[in-house]
């Protein structure tokens, strides 16, 4: 690169005047911002005593739940599409023949490693029977890694816990 290239537009820093060099103006500007926030309405939520307000719970991507059908059975048909779609490989399903006459296949075990999950919602997207959904529960905590691997019962209990506040988004039964 040549320095006298005509295509190069050389920009020089403007020279600072007295006000600029004293930084006084910038100081006042910064302090104004601080003071404005100091006296404005507080947005900090005192979690966990206070709950964060979620504007649209159905589209929030929190902890998973496994929905139940009308007879209270797990709705999942163990098609493995969520596990296939999962970019984090956190879903593990063991399929088996269902114990019910009207259903063919069901998940004998269904576990989600919530620590591995990236909460992208692809499983919900892939599910052909609307069995897996992401709830608006966001405060996920546990004392060990094992505790954070949610099994079928745990995921169904999340459904029981949230079914009244967040109805199933479903097009079929």
């Amino acid at each position: 690169m040549k320095t006298d290239d005509r295509n190069i537009n050389w920009v020089r820093e403007p020279r600072l005047g007295l006000a600029g060099r004293s930084y006084l103006l910038l100081f006042v500007q910064g302090l104004t911002t601080t003071l404005r926030h100091f006296f404005s309405r507080k947005k900090t939520v005192q979690s966990p005593e206070e709950r964060h307000e979620i504007p649209d719970p159905p589209i929030y991507r929190g902890v998973h739940r496994l929905n139940r059908d009308q007879r209270g059975r797990v709705k999942c048909v163990a098609c493995f599409l969520c596990a296939t779609a999962c970019p984090a490989d956190c879903i593990d399903i063991v399929a088996a023949e269902s114990p019910w006459t009207d259903r063919e296949k069901y998940p004998q075990s269904f576990t989600i490693d919530e620590l591995r999950c990236i909460f992208c919602g692809m499983c919900e997207e892939a599910c052909p029977v609307d069995a897996i959904e992401l709830t608006s529960l966001y405060d996920l905590s546990g004392k060990s890694r094992e505790e954070m691997i949610f099994d079928k019962e745990k995921l169904l209990s999340v459904y029981d816990q949230t079914k009244n506040t967040e109805p199933m988004i479903t097009k079929r039964d």
Binding site: A78, C79, F80, T84, A95, A96, E97, K105
Partner: peptide, 9 residues
């Protein structure tokens, strides 16, 4: 093999 694996795996 019934129900044990999906073929794409």
């Amino acid at each position: 093999f019934l129900y044990r694996q999906r073929v794409w795996y």
